[in-house]
Structure formats: structure tokens, C-alpha cells
Amino acid sequence: MCCWKNNRCSIFLSLLMLAALLTGCESGREGSAFYPVDSLVSAQIRTLAAVKAVLHKEATLGGQTDKSVYTPKDTTAWTDELDVFRQLHEINKPVNRDIYIVDDGLYDPSSNLTVKAFTATEPLPVMSMRIYYDNSIKKPRKIEAVYAEANSLYQSSKTLLMEFQQINNKTVLTSYTIEGGQKMIMRDSVTFSVRGKIQID
């Protein structure tokens, strides 16, 4: 007897199709992300290397300050400067999705920009992240976040800030700041900061 004429077979096929549909929806949900930080950083690295941007950098570690002005020669050099911001991609892990409170459409009176905020309700590496934008979140003006790490050897927390401008209708990083501190077992805490201003001719 043909399977399509068999009532049990029809029910089985219907359930199989429904399960496949639900699985597809679930996979799509897991693949979605809060914000493509990794892609944004990669795009900035390529852009800044291509235009041969000049970096004005000031780094402070434990009270000692060093200043430099130079042109990172390629994408590898810019990756060394900006790779720390890729850590924020941790927010997009599917396992973390239900741990964040997401608020969009917030108004920031100091900048007149709209803010989308992510706040962790449990201890996570990315404790918070705020994206400031004007008309589209795809063209951010500023991203700030708090990133924390802890293990049996040390505790570390840092505030990360990236600021952007629209140059030739492209989102371009124009400055960044990394500030924080680290406490190692049996040692004093050390504070650090890195400030970079990017010059594009």
C-alpha cells in the first residue's frame, strides 16, 4: 500500500516536517547575535591600514607614561592595537543570550544620541555594553563596555571605549580608550590606560 494513503505514515511525515521546521527556527535563533563587534573591529583594521592612518598613542602603566606617534604599517599592526576590542564578541555567545537585559531607544542627553544597552544579570566577561548611534545602529558613534576576568591567579577589569565618525559615508574609528586594573595573587594592584587618537589625512 502507498505510504501517502496510509494514515499513520501521513501523521509520521507531518510530525517529521514539523520537527525539521522547529529545529530550523531554533538554529536560526542560536545564530543570531546582539551586535557584530568582531566584524566591526575587523572592518576598522582593514580601513585604517588601507588609508595609512596615523596613531597618536599614550599608554600609562603603574604611573609610568609613554607617548608615541606612528603609522601602523599593515593589518597585523592594527590588529595588535585593536584586538582587545574583539573580546566584546563574548556577548554574542548563545549560552549568554538570556543573561542580558537589553534596552534600546534610550536617550543620552549629553550627546543627543540614541543608546542600545546590554546589562548582564550574572557575572560574565562582558558585564555591560552601550552602543551610541544617530540614525542607524549599523553606523555607531560610540561603543563603551566593561570587561572583567577572574581566575585563581588574578582579577582584571577594564573599561573599553571606541569612538567613530562618518568619513566618506563610511564608519571609521577615530579614537579609543582602554582603562582598568589588575590584581595578581600576593602582589599589589596595577592600573593601566591606553588612549589612542587616529589621524586620517
Rank of each mutant, 00 (worst) to 15 (best):
S136I: 01
S27D: 14
I178K: 09
K183N: 06
N112P: 06
S128G: 00
M1Y: 10
N96D: 04
D201C: 05
L173Y: 00
Y70L: 08
L61R: 12
P36F: 04
P36L: 08
H89Q: 13
T60S: 08
E149T: 09
L22P: 00
Q199T: 15
V54Q: 13
E30Q: 15
H56L: 13
T174P: 09
R97D: 09
T79D: 05
I178P: 04
D98N: 14
S152T: 12
Y100Q: 03
I91L: 04
P140V: 07
E26T: 14
L82S: 03
A20E: 11
Q165E: 15
S193T: 03
V194S: 00
M127K: 13
Q64H: 09
C25R: 11
V69N: 00
Y133P: 02
S111A: 07
A53T: 00
T65K: 08
K183Y: 04
Y107A: 15
V37E: 03
D134Y: 05
V146A: 01
K93S: 11
V54W: 05
V54S: 11
I198E: 03
R86P: 00
C3H: 12
A33R: 15
A50E: 10
V190Y: 05
I167C: 11
I45K: 02
F164Y: 08
D104N: 04
A145M: 02
L48A: 03
E163N: 13
L173I: 05
S189N: 10
A117I: 07
L55I: 06
M184A: 13
C9F: 03
S136R: 11
P123E: 06
S175H: 01
M184N: 13
S128A: 10
P109H: 02
L124K: 01
Y176T: 05
K183T: 12
M1P: 14
G24I: 05
Q87E: 04
Y147W: 05
Q87K: 11
D66K: 13
N151H: 01
D74L: 06
D83E: 10
S128R: 09
F118H: 09
V41I: 12
V126H: 02
V84H: 00
K158H: 01
I45T: 03
K52G: 10
P94E: 03
N151I: 06
D108W: 01
S189W: 03
E58I: 06
L48D: 02
T65L: 02
I131M: 07
L21H: 10
F12T: 13
E163R: 05
L15H: 06
S111C: 02
S110C: 11
K93T: 11
A53Y: 01
K5Q: 13
L22K: 08
A59F: 09
T177R: 07
A50I: 04
S152P: 08
M1N: 14
P109W: 02
T75F: 01
T177D: 11
G63I: 07
L21Y: 07
R46E: 13
I198L: 00
F118Q: 01
I198M: 01
T174N: 12
G105Y: 00
K170Q: 15
L160G: 07
